[in-house]
Every structure is written in structure tokens, then in C-alpha cells.
Write a protein that binds this DNA or RNA. Sequence first.
DNA 1: CGACTCCTTGAAATTGGTTTTCAATTTAAC
DNA 2: GTTAAATTGAAAACCAATTTCAAGGAGTCG
Lengths: 145, 145
Amino acid sequence: MGEKKQTFRDYLSQQGLKSTRQREIILDEFLRCDSHLSTEDLYLKLRKKHPGIGYATVYRTLKIFSECGIAEARNFGDGQTRYESTTCEEHHDHLICKDCGAIIEFEDPGIEQLQEQVARDHGFAIVSHRLEIFGLCAKCQNKER
Amino acid sequence: MGEKKQTFRDYLSQQGLKSTRQREIILDEFLRCDSHLSTEDLYLKLRKKHPGIGYATVYRTLKIFSECGIAEARNFGDGQTRYESTTCEEHHDHLICKDCGAIIEFEDPGIEQLQEQVARDHGFAIVSHRLEIFGLCAKCQNKER
DNA sequence: CGACTCCTTGAAATTGGTTTTCAATTTAAC
DNA sequence: GTTAAATTGAAAACCAATTTCAAGGAGTCG
Ligand SMILES: [Mn+2]
Ligand SMILES: [Mn+2]
Ligand SMILES: [Zn+2]
Ligand SMILES: [Zn+2]
């Protein structure tokens, strides 16, 4: 079984929560899908095979995913919260195309280090951060002409 | 008269919009106040001296401020859009205290340069970006113990 | 100064994503 | 099985943002 599924089940029992058919289905679909899905995105995908599952359940389940660390909530300023599966990989930030919505992930240790320096300079203790770069992806730059 | 006020008036006439008592009052108060105010923050401050001014007018006026470049909309993830007066200074990013809500501004040319490098590496054309570092300010770190 | 046009205003209604409520159902432990 | 507690889905509530609309105001032209 996937590591994520195990993590989720462990979290549920440890919190006195219950393992249900819906939660399993939602997790399976979430892990199968591309990342950066909104609640509604996932709800609509699920509805095709499982019309009975309610929006509220998807919403609540995604929240549990992020509580137990297998997903992370993101907010790219389009008014919808998006969730992405946390991989074993490191933290990453995003390039976001304003035209087609494409999301490119990147990591830059240099930027991260400079952030820590900035925080130190202000006596500030970092808990988290987010860096989003908005613009046009290569494809959309070519389209423009 | 302040440069901002002139910019605003020029923008209004150039767009065929009208200069009104309310817009003048709202601009004065906005310029007097601390930055990073939400629409509601500003509305509540205004209401003390000018109970007649409506929320919708404050909302619409802030929008015009950002259109004409004298204010910038920010979104720090607390579910409210905040506006800050654009100074003659450069772009800046923010350190945000999760405890007391304090907002510290900073500029780091090194970070900006690395961002440009990242974009180049992906053939991405930057239009804007935002970097927010969340954590605890010096004061709140001391409170914790 | 009017008269006229178009813009603006404030209150209230609407929108859209998110979150909660509640009665019925399901889970898990005994 | 019985039972207590958690879960579910539909609907309602929430809440910031945005729009609507009728009344009022600004600017223009004579
Ligand atoms: Mn990502
Ligand atoms: Mn600022
Ligand atoms: Zn694109
Ligand atoms: Zn603080």
C-alpha cells in the first residue's frame, strides 16, 4: 500500500477518526490526479464514478489530508484554495502562467538561503513562506505574436 | 498638493471619471493611515468622521487607486484583500507575524536576481511576483516563553 | 445661471467559494 | 448484536467581494 495511504490511516486512528469508504475513494482519486486541484476540481472528477459523494465530504477530507501532512493547501490568488500532494521531495515554489494557468514548480536553495538571512536580519523566526512568480510561460509568449 | 492626489485627479479626468467629495475624503484618509489596510479597515476609520460614506464607495475607490497606480492590492492569505500606498520606493516583500499580525517590509536584490534566473531557466517571462515569509516576529518570540 | 448628460452614491441584493448544521447512517469497540 | 461516537450529504449559513438600482451630483454647453 502507498505510504500516503498508510500515513492517512494512521492519522485517522490516532485522532479517533474513522476510516470510511468515501475517504478511501477520495484519497485514491486525489493521489491519482494531477496536483494543484481545487476542492471543486476533485469533486467533479469524483462525481463521474461516485455520484453519491458530497461536496462537503470532499472538502472535509482534503482538510484532513493537509492536517496529516499528505497534502498541502495553496492559494495562487485566483480565489480558490488548491491542494497538492506532498511528495517526499523538498519544499518548492511556483511559476504561474497568467494566460494558460500552467504551473511550473521549482526549488532554489539560493533563494531559500537569502530568505533565512533576511529573517535573521529582522530577528524573525520563519515558520513557512511562499514565493509565486506570475507571468507568461514559454508557450504563451509565442502565442502572443 | 501631494503627488498622489495629483496623480489620482489626473487619472480621473483622463478616464472621464468625476472628482467627488467622497473620493477626496477617502484618498486623504488612505494616505494618512498605515498601510496594509483592508477595505473594511478603511471603511471603519472613515465612518467615525464621515458616517455617510458607504462601504461600496470605499471598495470602488480603492479599486481606482490601484488602477491608477497609487495603491497596490495585497493578499496575505487571511481572506481579506489589503491595500498599501505605493511609495516612490522600489518593490518590496513581506515578513508576516502569525501571532500579532505585524508586517515587516524588506527588499532583497539578491532574491530578485535569483528569481529572474529561475524564470530564464524555464523560458518564463515575469510579470509580477510575491514573496511572503510567515513566522514569529522578535517580540512574539520572547512572549512565547 | 439653467438644462442636460453621464457619473457616482449608498443601501441592499447577489455572487462564489468556503464552512457549518442537522438528521440519518455508518463505523468501531464492547 | 448493541451502543456510543463519528460521518455523511443536502441544504443552509457565512463572509468578503461585487453588482444592481434609484436618487443625487458633477461637469459641460449654451
Ligand atoms: Mn506545487
Ligand atoms: Mn508592504
Ligand atoms: Zn501559459
Ligand atoms: Zn508578532
